[in-house]
Design a protein around this nucleic acid. Structure first.
Length: 465
DNA sequence: GCATGATCATGC
DNA sequence: GCATGATCATGC
C-alpha cells in the first residue's frame, strides 16, 4: 500500500493537491519510459496514474469515491484575445440504456458520479504531445441550482427517448446543457436498448461546449455580459425551457414588426442587419448589450427567416465561409459544417402579408441522423471538387460586360438539404485553393459556404409533422 | 419564380 | 478590415 500525497477522504486535501498542477505539464511527473514510449493513452489516464496515483477505472462511483469528487480533464484553446475557451464538449460517463430507464435523476449514475467535479483544463497545441500541454485551470465545479434544474430536464428528455425505444435516434442537440454525445469508434460500438430491437450507437453524457466555456469563464473570474431568460426555479417547475421561450414569443404571433416594437416600447434600427437578433433579445427581455445566457451555454443557434406567402423562405440560410484548405484537410466527421448542423437551432419565422412582415412562428429544431447522412453526401462531393481542382465549370460574360463564373459545386438541385454558394464581400473576396483550378489556373477562389436550402427549411423545419 | 452568383451592414 | 448573418440581382 503506497501512501498518497493527499488525503483521499478529504475534498479540500484533494483540491489543494490538484491545484499544484497549475503551470505544470505531465512531463514533470510521468516516468521517462512512458513519455518516450509509444503509449497512446490520453491525458486523463496519465494524470490519474502518475499524479493522483490511482488506476484509471470505469466504476459507477466518482473517481475519489470517499470525497465524492469526479476528476475530469479537458483541453482548452486560446483565442486571439488571449482568452481560453473549451476545445470541445466535456465527456462524462457512458449512458447505459438498459439501466437509465429505471433511474430517477437524483439517484442516477450521471448524478451520483458527476455531482461534484474536479476539473483540470490544459492548453492543447497542435504541435505538442499530451506530455507538453500546460495545465492552466484547476478547480472544483458544482452546478448552480438553476443549471441543475435544466440539466435534470435534459436527463429526463434523454431517458424518455430511450423509454420510447428511440435510443438510436438520440442526438446531442435534443437537449440544452447535458447532451448525449456519441462515444467510441465510428459506428462501431453499438449497444442494446430496452424497448426496441434496433441497436443504438454508444453515447455518453456530455456538457455542451458552450456550457464548458461558461465554466471556464467563471473559474477564471471573467465576467460574461449575460442576461438570463429564466431567473428563478419556480418557472421551471411548471414548464420546460423550450416552453418558456416559446410562450414569450407566442405573445407576439401575428403581430407586425412595428407592432412588436411598439408593444415592447423599445427603439431599434429596423434597417440594421442584426435587427432580428436585437428584436429576439428584446422579446426575451435581455438587454441589447448582453448575450442570452441560456442560449450561449446550450450552444443554440438563432436564425430568422422571412417566409413568402407560400411559406417558402425568401432566402436560403447561409453559414460562415469555409476555407478550401480546411475542407481538404478534414473528413466529414471532423468537419466544421457537421459540428454546426449538430447544434440546436431556434428558428424565428416572419411571414410576408403583402409588404408587411408578421411574426408567424418560432421553433426549436435539430437535424435528424438520417438527414445528416444526406448532407454528408453533399460535403463529400464538395471535397472531391476541391481536391481535384475542378471548381470552375464555365465563365460567362453578361450584357453589361460583367464576368460570371459558374462552379461544379453541389447546387440546390443536387441535394435536398444543402448546397454550396458564394459568400463573401464580393467576388474578389477569395480564399486560397490547396489545388490550382484546372480552368482558371488560379490558386484562389471566391469565398463560398454551405447553405441550407429554403425548400428544406419549409418542408422539414417550418412544417409541423 | 427558381437557381446561382454577388454583395451588404454591423460589430468586434 | 474582416467575419458573419442577412439580403440583393440577374438570367433562364
Amino acid at each position: 500500500m503506497i501512501s498518497l500525497p493527499y488525503n483521499p477522504s478529504s475534498k479540500d486535501s484533494i483540491i489543494s493537491y490538484a491545484k499544484k498542477l497549475i503551470g505544470k505539464n505531465l512531463k514533470e511527473f510521468c516516468p521517462k519510459d512512458i513519455i518516450n514510449g509509444k503509449n497512446k493513452g490520453g491525458f486523463g489516464q496519465f494524470l490519474e496514474k502518475y499524479y493522483f496515483l490511482y488506476e484509471p477505472n470505469s466504476l459507477e462511483e466518482p473517481d475519489f469515491s470517499l470525497a465524492k469528487l469526479e476528476l475530469k480533464s479537458s483541453p482548452l484553446k486560446e483565442l486571439k484575445n488571449l482568452k481560453f475557451v473549451s476545445k470541445e464538449r466535456l465527456v462524462l460517463n457512458i449512458i447505459n440504456y438498459m439501466d437509465i430507464v429505471n433511474q430517477d435523476f437524483e439517484f442516477s449514475s450521471f448524478y451520483k458520479k458527476n455531482k461534484n467535479l474536479l476539473l483540470v483544463f490544459y492548453l492543447h497545441k497542435v504541435d505538442e504531445t499530451v506530455f507538453d500541454y500546460k495545465i492552466k485551470i484547476v478547480d472544483e465545479w458544482n452546478f448552480p441550482s438553476l443549471d441543475l434544474e435544466l440539466i435534470k430536464q435534459d436527463f429526463l428528455k434523454i431517458k424518455e427517448k430511450i423509454l420510447n425505444g428511440k435510443a438510436h435516434e438520440l442526438s446531442e442537440a435534443d437537449t440544452l446543457y447535458l447532451g448525449a454525445c456519441t462515444k467510441g469508434s465510428k459506428g462501431g460500438n453499438k449497444r442494446e436498448q430496452p424497448n426496441s430491437n434496433i441497436k443504438a450507437k454508444q453515447r455518453a453524457f456530455s456538457l455542451k461546449q458552450g456550457y464548458v466555456n461558461h465554466i471556464i469563464a467563471s473559474l477564471s473570474g471573467n465576467k460574461e455580459k449575460y442576461g438570463k431568460v429564466i431567473d428563478n426555479l419556480e418557472v421551471l417547475k411548471k414548464k420546460t425551457f423550450e416552453e418558456v421561450i416559446l410562450d414569450k414569443f407566442k405573445a407576439y404571433y401575428g403581430k407586425t414588426v412595428s407592432q412588436i416594437i411598439n408593444d415592447l416600447n423599445i427603439e431599434l434600427n429596423s434597417k440594421a442587419k442584426n435587427f432580428y437578433a436585437n428584436l429576439t433579445k428584446a422579446i426575451l427581455n435581455i438587454k441589447q448589450d448582453c448575450e442570452i445566457e441560456e442560449f450561449k451555454k446550450a450552444d443554440i443557434e438563432v436564425r430568422t427567416v422571412r417566409l413568402k406567402n407560400n411559406n417558402l423562405p425568401k432566402e436560403d440560410i447561409s453559414f460562415k465561409a469555409f476555407k478550401y484548405e480546411d475542407i481538404m484537410r478534414q473528413n466529414w466527421n471532423s468537419s466544421e459544417f457537421k459540428e454546426i448542423l449538430e447544434k440546436k437551432f431556434l428558428f424565428i419565422f416572419f411571414k410576408y402579408y403583402g409588404d408587411e412582415l408578421k411574426l408567424e412562428k418560432v421553433k426549436f429544431w435539430n437535424i435528424s441522423n438520417d438527414d445528416l447522412q444526406i448532407v454528408r453526401k453533399m460535403w463529400i462531393d464538395t471535397k472531391k471538387i476541391i481536391i481535384s481542382g475542378n471548381i470552375v465549370k464555365e465563365i460567362k460574360t453578361d450584357k453589361n460586360g460583367k464576368i460570371k463564373r459558374y462552379t461544379n459545386f453541389p447546387g440546390k438541385k443536387d441535394n435536398y438539404i444543402s448546397h454550396v454558394r458564394p459568400h463573401g464581400q464580393n467576388s474578389q473576396d477569395v480564399f486560397s485553393l490547396p489545388i490550382e483550378d484546372k480552368l482558371t489556373r488560379e490558386k484562389f477562389y471566391t469565398k463560398h459556404c454551405f447553405w441550407l436550402n429554403a425548400s428544406f427549411v419549409k418542408e422539414k423545419i417550418f412544417k409541423d409533422i
